[in-house]
Amino acid sequence: MEMQALEAARRWLAARGVRRVRDGWVSDERPDVLLTANQVAHSWAGDVFAEDLDAADRVRLAFGLLDLLDEYWVTCEIRFANGSADGPLPADALWDGYRQRLEADRDAEAVTYSLWVDWFEDHTTSATAFDEVLGNDVDRVVAERSEPLLRRARRVLECSGPVRWTVKEPAYRTVVRLPALHPSLFRGLRASFHDVYGDLEPAAALALLDRLELPANTRHRAELRHVLAAGHENHFSSPGAWDDAVRSCS
């Protein structure tokens, strides 16, 4: 499915006179000007949603552009289209696109960054987004333990800091049963404390932290335990708490 979307995106750009060359991209309008993938994304990605296509096919074409260009801006155009007067986008196509790329055995930085700063930091969308990419099928992730599902879970957990604690705690409590996900859950707990919009409940987070099987030399585990045991909810709402923990644990 991803390869089909990528090839469709390549053909779509070619029809607009945009093609890849050895060191970047060029357009027929200005063939002597070398473009970056980011420039291509900013110039053409938004046009996908003006195409005379089924709405789901537009979404799939946009994700194909993401695969082709690997640029965060493509995810911005997807988000803009979802919130536009013609939105929302078809949920199946939208979240299938995210899930597939979170499971893929290749870099997913643009996708995880999009989840983190666009979908998870916005509390009007974070619950739906988190449930779609992990919460709804976390039991299957733990039961099946396939590498694609584990890969998706790791990536989501590690950028889930801004998600409301009441939304993500059930998934956290489920994945704690699987040691393979403990390092990523630890990073999720740490981000829940450190992120500007991070959210956690100290006692519940501490109970989860104490169940994690982590290497003895895991950095910041002792400090995180210290601030949680003291009842701190967030680095930015408790200035100095982390520095106190560093001094106490050194």
Rank of each mutant, 00 (worst) to 15 (best):
C249Y: 02
A37M: 09
V176K: 05
D139H: 14
A41H: 09
D86V: 06
R247F: 12
R11D: 15
V176C: 07
A8F: 11
D54T: 09
L69G: 03
S27Y: 06
Y98A: 08
E51P: 02
E169S: 13
F49A: 02
S238R: 00
V18F: 11
P162V: 11
A191T: 02
E144Y: 11
E2P: 00
R101V: 05
V138G: 11
A205H: 08
S184A: 13
F49L: 00
D47I: 00
S146M: 03
R11G: 09
R154W: 02
D105L: 04
L200W: 01
L6K: 14
R22A: 15
L6H: 10
A50C: 13
L68Q: 11
D52L: 07
F130G: 10
R101W: 07
D195F: 07
L208N: 01
R20D: 01
H182Y: 00
W95A: 01
L212T: 00
D92F: 13
A153Q: 10
V163L: 10
A229E: 02
L6E: 13
D54F: 12
A9P: 02
A143Y: 08
W242I: 07
P179T: 08
R10E: 14
C249P: 08
S192V: 08
R164G: 12
A62L: 08
F63N: 07
A205M: 03
S250H: 13
V142D: 08
A229S: 04
T112C: 10
A37Y: 01
G161Q: 05
A37T: 00
L214T: 00
S160L: 05
H220F: 14
D92W: 12
E147D: 12
R16G: 11
R211A: 04
S114L: 08
L178P: 05
V74Y: 11
L69H: 04
A241I: 06
R22E: 15
E103C: 05
A108S: 14
S126Y: 03
P202Q: 05
D199V: 06
G64R: 06
H220Q: 14
V175K: 04
T128C: 09
V142A: 11
E169Y: 10
A91C: 07
V26Y: 01
Y72M: 13
A85R: 08
L6Y: 09
E213R: 08
P162G: 03
E213Q: 06
R79T: 14
R11I: 13
P90Q: 04
D105C: 02
V175M: 09
D105P: 09
P88C: 01
P148C: 05
A15E: 15
